[in-house]
Nucleic acid binder design. Structure first.
Lengths: 154, 154
DNA sequence: TGCCTTCATGGAAGATTCTTCCGTTATTGA
DNA sequence: TCAATAACGGAAGAATCTTCCATGAAGGCA
């Protein structure tokens, strides 16, 4: 958005996106500036919000969250209050990775991670269709994760 | 999967997921072990694949990738070769964040980030419908990102 | 029980890195 | 051209990393 990122900043962003554990010294060498300058620039990337946070990516299969499900949701009514209530309730469900208001045949798309299909069926019955204003849901079980959460290309 | 994670390992995973920049010393203090032990445990979490990588999360809006689109794809034929060819081609398109083979009305679901709708329309015409074996696509423009890529709850 | 093996832990210390200050250089605008 | 502003790299004290080693706990077995 802002053109206030020069070639060095962009390279730093890409390197940190690929490896958030890079030390300042390594990063400095990779972009050919001094550690002091690199430190200052990195700090700016955080301070000005170019990097929102740094996250260790936990392998879902290793912590019993190997099942991925996409769910399309249609609400009863298309009122702002109805949307707001739904979104507020969704925010409390920690197994929901994505929740996006979309244009098209659905109102919302959800991306959900659980242990297995049995888990999902229980959650679907207990918590999803119980969300406020839900008229119908359509479930798409993910059979193969071809690409999941790829790094941003910029 | 493996029950080889004790309470300390799990806490470390959660803390590192929330903040991948935690220093070893800080993490050690948070989970009440010595820096040496913490260092050894962290290394194990990486070596054994509990943490696949650490990533700086770049704000899409700041690098002109503010538009998010979900796309459902149906292929011409449901043969293994057809699927393989499609997946191979998808892997080369860097603007695709997610690509999942699903059960249901679609064959694949894509999650795509671009600069704006004009960008997407160009990409849709040039690259998406040109993917091998695509019979039809259905586009869902994201109007509001309620939750995007939430941390894994485990 | 007593002993041995195995394993995880914390202290310690040299090596590395971080973080900040400061003088210098490059860029901008009048 | 010249002054003002911003960005740069060197340097150094503080903090951290990384590894080695000795200690102590847990489990198996006679």
């Amino acid at each position: 958005m802002k053109a206030s990122l020069d070639r060095i900043d962009l390279k730093m962003l890409r390197l940190l996106q690929d490896n958030g554990r890079l030390t300042n010294a390594e990063l400095a060498q990779s972009v050919a500036v001094s550690p002091a300058t690199c430190h200052r620039r990195t700090q700016r990337l955080f301070d000005e919000g170019y990097i929102s946070h740094v996250r260790a990516v936990v392998m879902p299969q290793k912590v019993d969250r190997g099942a991925l499900v996409m769910v399309g949701v249609v609400l009863d009514r298309s009122t702002p209050e109805s949307f707001a209530e739904f979104e507020k309730a969704v925010a409390k469900l920690k197994f929901i990775l994505d929740c996006h208001l979309v244009a098209g045949d659905f109102d919302y798309f959800l991306k959900i991670r659980v242990g297995d299909m049995a888990d999902f069926n229980r959650i679907h019955g207990d918590q999803l269709i119980a969300l406020p204003g839900v008229r119908q849901t359509r479930t798409f079980f993910v059979m193969k994760e071809v690409v999941d959460n790829a790094p941003l290309d910029f």
